[in-house]
Design a protein around this nucleic acid. Structure first.
Lengths: 116, 116
DNA sequence: CAGAATCCTATGTGATACTG
DNA sequence: CAGTATCACATAGGATTCTG
């Protein structure tokens, strides 16, 4: 049987489990959704994900980078650092699945409290 | 903006996050894979998932039941209980995504230590 | 602006033993 | 056979503070 080793040195027997270990992180879907549209700077991501702390945001960006789903370029402009994140081709290859999950969630999981 | 309320009384703003909260549990993908093939009894699931404790197995089966992804029927045969689990239509509607995740994981995440 | 370091809490997961 | 109960542990996530 094949084992799957991820960049973060975790091991899985089940490919679905390995995939969810990436997508399953709390803010990763939202991050991917944003980056699917266009590259974002760190601060822009933070602004978009107001309830996500810098630590966790950076943590999950690191995971995505280590897994080669996103790439990161830094530049120094006017004495400040600009850190830009964007999807890699591998990250883009995952987006159809993320969108399928979004669609399924919207179709099947929404229940409005008023109508309940 | 829509909020998503799951059967386990958790709330999400992001449908992908809500979906992964179901698929993302450690043994859920494996359970779904098994049930996609045919109904299983509790003991059969346990035998197939040797490294999953009864407690966690039951816990995740409960989550799937509460979310209406699987159904459970019990029967008493020869003084013992037979508890059978099977996919609901809703659970089946999720399988294409699970298989897509499996496929993506196999395509992109496998790295064999020998070749590394 | 981006990020690293520290501390704290909630949750998920697991081992074991017990019950109807 | 199919659970439940209890204890213990690892990890994820968050709040706050500090740095180049």
């Amino acid at each position: 049987m094949n084992e799957i080793y991820l960049a973060n040195n975790t091991t899985f027997n089940c490919p679905v489990e390995a995939t969810t270990s990436l997508i399953g992180k709390k803010w990763v879907p939202s991050i991917l959704m944003l980056l699917a549209d266009k590259p974002y700077r760190f601060g822009q991501l933070q602004a978009a994900l107001t309830k996500c702390s810098k630590k966790v945001l950076k943590q999950q960006l690191n995971l995505l980078s280590a897994s080669d789903l996103i790439s990161n370029t830094k530049a120094t402009v006017a004495n400040t650092v600009e850190s830009t994140y964007q999807l890699t081709p591998l990250g883009q290859s995952l987006m159809p699945i993320v969108f399928a999950m979004k669609h399924w969630g919207n179709q099947h999981l929404i229940c409005n409290r008023e109508s309940a």
